[in-house]
Design a protein around this nucleic acid. Sequence first.
DNA 1: GCGGCAATTGATCAACCGATCAACTCAGAG
DNA 2: CTCTGAGTTGATCGGTTGATCAATTGCCGC
Lengths: 195, 195
Amino acid sequence: MPSTTTAPSARLAGPARRAAILAAATELALSDGLAALTLRRVGERAGVASGLVAHYVDGMDALVAEVFAGISARERSEVAGVRGIAPLVRTLTDGTRDAVTRVWVQAWAESPAHARLAAAVRDEQAAWRALLEDALREAGAADAAPVARALLGMIDGVNAHALAGGRDRADHAPLLLRALEAMLGMQRGALDDSQ
Amino acid sequence: MPSTTTAPSARLAGPARRAAILAAATELALSDGLAALTLRRVGERAGVASGLVAHYVDGMDALVAEVFAGISARERSEVAGVRGIAPLVRTLTDGTRDAVTRVWVQAWAESPAHARLAAAVRDEQAAWRALLEDALREAGAADAAPVARALLGMIDGVNAHALAGGRDRADHAPLLLRALEAMLGMQRGALDDSQ
DNA sequence: GCGGCAATTGATCAACCGATCAACTCAGAG
DNA sequence: CTCTGAGTTGATCGGTTGATCAATTGCCGC
């Protein structure tokens, strides 16, 4: 079996190789962080010379932005099947997506220095806000836009804190749902579908 | 007048020089980010050779952790004078502390790779949680601990999103206060002291 | 005034970074 | 079967980083 590096891959057609490199970079970002995306380490992970990575990418900044956007978009599509705002909040705070949260936090941190990454962050943030906004409207919320914005920040913040907090990962979903009811002007328990 | 670098400082006693270097590093972190803390750039800012910075510090990781802890502790003491949970929430989300938020986000991002920084982040998070917990208890909240934890995450998350969002910085304080009332089981408007 | 010692310098090292490019290799068209 | 062009390599360059340390400087006690 190969170690961490993929088996010495055969020659691939251009687009296929590019896809393989992107996949390797995505794995690497999820396991070792966005900062681990260097020409040499991505090449090693993909079983390819560093020069080939550079050949298929318009600079490392562009690769980082593309990898981030891909990770966020994939998570968005994974979550698109969840019906109802309450299950959505529960899913997004159940602690099974720490690797993705880490990537988000690193993207925020590097945004001031990397314009392309910053643009990708803005786009993905807007897409997530739209996703939450739709779910809120379906739940009968008026004026869903500002609440969606606040809710998204809350979810990400609570996840980021849990990431750094270590052992004591608390279950924030019930508190978040009560908070959400209040922000929407709903009765307490209106979003509680747990029983 | 000196440019960005401090005037060619005279010879200082050990502890004084160390303090000066720490101050320069703190300025640098707030203006250019934690990642800007290199031996050479800190030295330049302090008007001192890079070797001297290394001489007064137990490795750059330790300096980064110390600078972060200092920035967070200073902000905590600045805010300690604010009485009441509602003014506290408003103060922490008024957008005047973006530089500090940036440092927090960068600390989260680098924590997985830097043990000392990670420990400092945990400590500061605990201190902030305790601060909020006290304020909540004063406002008559029972079971303040989990709510303090969630509220802290919400504040940081909302601030981080505002940081990345660019132009459209929203005023989240009213929504946060309504959410907080609900999490505490209080009546709507119970925390509204705006008039 | 003068020695001694702490403060300070800045060159140096190895490691890593992104980017470049001449040279090599192989699959598939003719 | 050959030959062309796309895929691929890996050495190389200039730059930045943290760390080290011999050499220098200047203050302070005597």
